[in-house]
Structure formats: C-alpha cells, structure tokens
C-alpha cells in the first residue's frame, strides 16, 4: 500500500529535532534509517502529521573511543556495525550480531539507534546492548541523560524513553582482560526473525568465570537477562555440569507465551539448546 500524506522535516541538530517534535504536538515521528517507520506507514499502522528526519544530524553519527568506553552514534547503519574495526575490537557482540540482522540491503539503511528505540522483542541489538551492559544516551527537552540497558527495555516496543526523546549514542564499557563472547540465533532461514537468540559475554580468570552476562531475545515481550543462569555460572569453572545447571536454571529466567506457530515448551527447549551451544563455544575460545 501507499503511505498516507505527511510533511517532512530534515532536522539540522538534536535541538532542532526536539523543537520540531514539540511543535507537532504529539503528531511527529522521528525517522532514522526508516526501515521500520516507512513500512509501518505503507501498512497504515500509523499516520503522523510529519516525519522528522534525523539522518543529517552530525551529533548522532560516528564511532569513537572515549576514556576506554566505545561511543557508537545512534545513526550508525547495521552494515557499518558489521565492518567497523573499533566495534570489532571493543564491542565484539555487535560485530557478531550484525550479520544476523535482516538482509544485506536492509543493513545498508537500518540504524542501531532505530533498532534499540523500536525495541522489537525479536531484534538482535537490544539483547546485545543488555549483554554488553551498555549505557544509552538519551536527549530530551530537559537535557541529556544516560540509561543503563538493563533499565531501558520495558516491554514490547516500549523503552524508558519519553515521547519526543532521542537516542543519541550507545556507550559500551571498556573491554576487560579475559573477556570472551558468543552470539547466535535459531531461525528458519537466514534473515528471518529468530525463534530464539542469545548474546553472551563473560570474563574468564584462571579457568573460572569471574563474570558473565546472558541476554535472550525472541523469547517473551522484551530482551531478557538470564539472571538465574548467570548466577549458576558466575565464579564457577565452565564444564558440562555447569552448563547443564545453567540450562536448567533458564526455566526461571524465561517466560515465553504459547503461540500458534510455537508452543512455549518448544521455545524453552530451543533456548536451552542455544545456551548450551554458546557456553560450549565460550569454553573453546577462552
């Protein structure tokens, strides 16, 4: 279908975008890569008075190291996430996850900030932000604030951002000695939405897991940290017994719903299988 009519504003700065949003009195929608917004318009799921294009704002672009933290501008396209050497070295989970996001042509336009702001529970990057314990820099009319990824994703398509706020950048904590990570998803075809996916980051010290974070997506209404499984693994050696215990602990972490195309029990099973694979992979790369 064709989109309903709307006006178009190319924002020059974050301040200009915030002002335009305010002036539209709730009838404006921000446009980043447009690969969720534009189809939603064509499907007539929303009909804003105007789109406010964020792609011309310099402050939302760029990838840089700042005091050990990696700053990723929210307008960074998925293809750049996949290829950028700083991301490969300082936020490896993003590098590993990017090729799983949709299809190559989509990755040339879609942006990491758009993906995190939309908070689709089947998306890869929100789970990556959780596993990396990233912090999200949000600009609003009252200034700039930083929200921990753990506090950012609230529910399906719902984040801690207030209407009109703009995600400016993602900050990834400094890489620690002994850090290892793994990412994978189970999908029927490459590029399809995952049936289950997960991102894992850990710190290995003298054969033990000094720290671990595990984040699942496509299981429930939002990307989810597997706290019980993490607790089982933390401070322990990685072996088959520990992996089995972590898999068993997942039942307490995940609460998928029964759906016509997949019962909850199957999704739980797939989550256990995937966690086993990822932890096994961590073991070999540690």
């Amino acid at each position: 279908m064709k989109s309903p009519a709307f006006d178009y504003i190319r924002a020059r700065s974050v301040a200009h975008a915030l002002e335009a949003y305010r002036d539209l009195d709730g009838e404006g929608v921000y446009l980043a890569g447009g690969h969720s917004v534009v189809p939603s318009l064509a499907l007539r799921l929303q009909a804003p008075a105007a789109l406010i294009d964020l792609s011309g704002i310099d402050a939302l672009t760029g990838i840089s190291l700042d005091d050990g933290w990696l700053r990723i501008g929210s307008m960074t396209r998925h293809a750049e996430i996949a290829s950028d050497p700083l991301i490969r070295d300082h936020a490896r989970l993003f590098h590993l996850a990017a090729p799983h996001v949709a299809h190559p042509a989509i990755r040339n336009r879609g942006t990491v900030g758009g993906s995190l702001s939309l908070a689709d529970p089947a998306s890869e990057f929100p789970a990556v932000a959780l596993a990396l314990r990233a912090e999200l820099e949000v600009a609003g009319r009252d200034g700039i604030r930083r929200v921990k990824a753990d506090d950012f994703f609230l529910d399906i398509y719902e984040t801690a951002m207030e209407p009109g706020e703009i995600l400016q950048a993602i900050f990834v904590p400094p890489v620690r000695t002994g850090e290892v990570c793994a990412f994978d998803e189970l999908a029927r075809r490459r590029g399809d939405y995952a049936m289950v996916g997960a991102a894992v980051q850990a710190v290995v010290e003298a054969g033990r897991l000094a720290d671990i974070s595990i984040a699942f997506f496509s299981v429930g209404n939002k990307p989810t940290r597997a706290g019980a499984a993490e607790a089982v693994l933390r401070e322990n050696a990685m072996n088959d017994t520990a992996i089995a215990a972590a898999q068993a602990a997942l039942d307490a972490d995940l609460d998928p719903s029964d759906e016509p195309q997949m019962p909850a029990s199957v999704r739980r099973h797939l989550a256990r299988v995937l966690l086993g694979r990822l932890l096994g992979h961590l073991g070999t790369t540690a």
Binding site: Y8, G34, H35, P39, P104, N108
Partner: peptide
C-alpha cells in the same frame, strides 16, 4: 543496494 520502497524520494 537498498529497497527503493523503503526509501522516501525526499531522503
């Protein structure tokens, strides 16, 4: 390569 249906002409 991009989807011409997902890019607005103004973009």
């Amino acid at each position: 390569p991009v989807h011409a249906c997902l890019v607005l002409a103004v973009q």
